[in-house]
Design a protein around this nucleic acid. Sequence first.
RNA 1: GCCACUGUAGCUCAGUGGUAGAGCGCACCCUUGGUAAGGGUGAGGUCGAGAGUUCAAAUCUCUCCAGCGGCUCCA
Length: 692
Amino acid sequence: MPQITLPDGTIKSFENPISAHDIAMSIGERLAKACVGCLIDEELSDLSTVIEHDCTLSLVTEKTRDKQDDPNALNLLRHSTAHVMAEAIQRIIPGAMLVYGPALDNGFYYDISFPEDRPLRDGDFEAIEKEMGAIVKENRPFTRYELEYSEGLEKVKAEGSKYKLDNAHRAHRAGSLTLSFYATGEPGKDWEDLCRGPHIPSTGRIGAFKIMSLASSYWHGDENSDRLTRVYGTSFFSKKDLNKHLEQLEEAKKRDHRVLGKKLKLFAIDETVGQGLILWTPNGSVVRKELQNFISAELTKQGYHEVFTPHIGKLDLYRTSGHFPYYAESQFPPLIERDHMHSLSEEGCSCAELSNHLKTGEIEGFMLKPMNCPHHIKVFDSQPHSYKDLPVRLAEFGTVYRWEQSGELNGMTRVRGFTQDDAHLFCTPDQIGQEVQGCLSLVKTIFRILGMNEYRVRVGLRDPDSGKYTGDPANWDKAEQACRDAAETLGVPFTEEPGEAAFYGPKIDFIVKDVIGREWQLGTVQVDYNLPERFDLSYIGPDNEKHRPVMIHRAPFGSMERFIGVLIEHFAGAFPVWLAPEQVRVLPISEKSNDYAHEVMSALHAVGIRSTMDNHDQRVQAKIKNGSEMKIPYLLIVGPRDAENRAVSVRAFGIEKDLGQMPLDNFVSAIGEEYRTKGRSSVRDRFATVNA
RNA sequence: GCCACUGUAGCUCAGUGGUAGAGCGCACCCUUGGUAAGGGUGAGGUCGAGAGUUCAAAUCUCUCCAGCGGCUCCA
């Protein structure tokens, strides 16, 4: 006699075991119709699940009461659509073997192994969608049935897919005594799949769906295992929702830093220069320079010293740091001295031999620096230090080069040459907490000024079961605690992740999402007990003895490339005045006003405002359109009426109508103020005061 | 690195075996205008590179290069 507790607290009792669907019916027929699944004791389940014991029950409908999408409903829908898609694909390509097909946040995928002679191509999408449409139209119920493990295993074996067999084994190992199958229709007659479920009641509930793209994946995510084809799709309860989703994707595309980078002329990548190597065009260089100046100023306030170091270093430097040959795969190949090259080629030296010579140090060479730390260490070590000097904080916008896999490169966010806003702090063990704290407060300041509040923090700790870490475990414990304490003070979500530490020390990472939801690691703060050891660094303590300093690596922005890539998307290209490459554009109404427009521009240039003039032979409407498309903060329309009053008519980006007229001198001082204060005071404010 | 797709004018793209196209941008001319595209004329292309098939290749095939979406990786 199950007692069912509903979300509002009411308790319903039933004489016999009863399905969730029938419970919904007992409340109301319309509710039952709207249901696609249920939560039984918080576990997402089929609506057809028969309840035998006391539990809490929450019915899952297409939309929540406030007409929002219900994530649970979409999850059921999408996993079910994955089944429909798999059936359609197997009808078209009978040899396709299914692997795994889960729902995602905004869709679903199915990993499938296709016969070698019949791969899936995106030209197949139309035919698959047509088949799927037919299956949806047939409105076949998703029917669950369970077999006892050994019996189920026989069935899976008979079907002959090693992937599904593996899934069955995994389910068993996870403690499952039975195997569950879902038929799309009638078991034994219609298509079915080994599946944990749950599903929506029937295919007819799938309102709209679309196959999105193909990708490749590896079985179990293992690069050395079978290669699978991953088919991505999405579905919604209504065509309207699907269209809305597709429109959002289009909108996101417009914010993409790669699209905006081209349109706003911020950066370029040229394949003859090399993939993953950013060319900063004048506009992008302005943004970068403003940011760098800002960071430099903040660093000076915090007692940092800027240094400059070369882009290359001897291999021996990296042998000492431990990065060569250990990380040779992810570095550009070494540069070898000319004399060595000659003699080696005369000796007929093979690549493998050369590589060995480099590893053992029999041949010396140079390397493009993959990180700045060894150079900064050498700066620190170029003179003796007293404990009174510590902490020593060395900062550099240091450009580094890493050999990223070609398939991983992505606009400005994943590149092969990038400039870190790097710094290394050398301190006593006692100073770690305070210094980590200082790094985080800098991050906080910078993110606040930029209005970037949507980031999360990851505290990378060592994996206790791994031996790859160097250094004293007691020191590790102390450093990990310092990171944890510092992260807590930030006031944003943070997670602790064992195994995410660098080999030399624990770290704090700042992670943001790009417009299409991909996460990127930006800044990082890392404690390092290892490199000071390897480089035998020391300072003289109060006891007149040598002591080992601790190092902290930190780069709050990560790299200028990635950060500005993310920043372009954050602002959708509409930079605030202090960062905008073009802060003001003067639009003369006709050639007759060109002279006054020049005067206006000179007045702005005189106070360091980046302004241009649009002297095309076009109407002002067209000039306004062009100016807005370039997302320029202020457009100044100047015509005879303005010239007469020595005024300008101001139009601010993002405002439909113009702000009105303002005396030229006032505008110049107002925008100068907006520039200097990074927006805390603005031209708009000035208008507001005048109008108030 | 792997799989799929894409590569045509400065940009966005059409062109599927038979003389290379459009819109925007650019230059010039007309227009001299007041808040999101006035009108006209013109310049601009080894169709990503190389090889092959063919009487004929932007188009078909192969190799390479690059981009995009994922996977894997990211000190």
